[in-house]
């Protein structure tokens, strides 16, 4: 579960408000899609949730733990996939997975089972003993995803996870997102692909100029617009100004 309560974050000594009084709850078992134009505050919100940024105001709770007061408890139940897979290029894929397993305290048997499963699904089995430096962009994205799945976290936060993935990997990612949430776990992700958001998400939030312009299920969003258009139409209308 993720709860954002009146969260604000600004840059440049308050001149640029990236996130402005954002209040939002993502329930357990829910896939939450976060949409918004470039620079609307999606990545900033995500970074606030995972503790890469410090909020100027407001509180964020992950599974009931305050991200500022109990950061380690939040981190222990959360994994994050950034929009650009910047990982230790000089380590092999397996060394990186081992590192993540060690710091999240994943037992060896679980590690073996999960690693095998995800490497197989993402077709990385043949590359896992090579340095990450030798991976393509998509392969790096997949190893970061595998690492994020390894601890079987309660909460997953993904920033534009489909970028760089081929259609097969993209499809598999969507499957695993569903699987993750079917176990009662929480998933928060940002995307620019309306179709994915429309088909996959239980609820969708649209952020514009740092403020939540709309939030709800697809049906609820459609009710906001008399024409009952597609998500793309709603998005364009809400983010026009």
């Amino acid at each position: 579960m993720i709860e954002l309560n009146h969260v604000s974050k600004s840059y440049n000594k308050g001149k640029i408000k990236a996130v402005d009084d954002l209040t939002l709850t993502v329930k357990p078992g829910e896939i939450f899609g976060f949409l918004g134009p470039n620079g609307a505050g999606k990545t900033t919100t995500i970074k606030l949730i995972v503790g890469l940024l410090k909020p100027d105001a407001g509180t964020i709770r992950v599974n009931g733990f305050d991200t500022q007061r109990e950061p380690l408890k939040c981190k222990a139940v959360t994994t994050y996939v950034p929009d650009y897979p910047a990982v230790y290029e000089r380590l092999t894929g397996l060394e990186y997975l081992n590192f993540i397993g060690d710091v999240y305290g994943v037992p060896k048997n679980d590690r073996l089972e999960r690693t095998r499963k995800w490497l197989e699904i993402f077709e990385l089995s043949q590359a896992v003993s090579n340095p990450i430096q030798s991976y393509s962009h998509g392969m790096k994205q997949k190893i970061v995803l595998t690492a994020a799945l390894l601890p079987a976290p309660e909460v997953m936060v993904l920033d534009e996870p489909m970028v760089g993935l081929d259609p097969r990997a993209s499809h598999q990612l969507k499957e695993l997102m569903r699987e993750h949430c079917s176990q009662g776990k929480t998933l928060f992700f940002s995307t620019h692909i309306m179709e994915v958001a429309e088909k996959l998400c239980d609820r969708i939030g649209i952020i514009h100029n740092g403020r939540l312009a709309a939030c709800g299920t697809m049906d609820e969003l459609k009710k906001l617009d008399k024409a009952e258009q597609s998500l793309e139409g709603i998005f364009l209308e809400l983010t026009e100004k």
Partner: peptide, 29 residues
């Protein structure tokens, strides 16, 4: 900057050998 890697899957035994049995975080870092 390109590093070529050999394409080879690890056998179950190799994987088990290479998979750490859980280092403490300080050691892992």
């Amino acid at each position: 900057g390109e590093v070529s890697g050999r394409k080879r899957s690890l056998s179950a035994l190799e994987m088990s050998h290479r998979m750490s049995s859980g280092r403490r975080p300080v050691r892992a870092i």
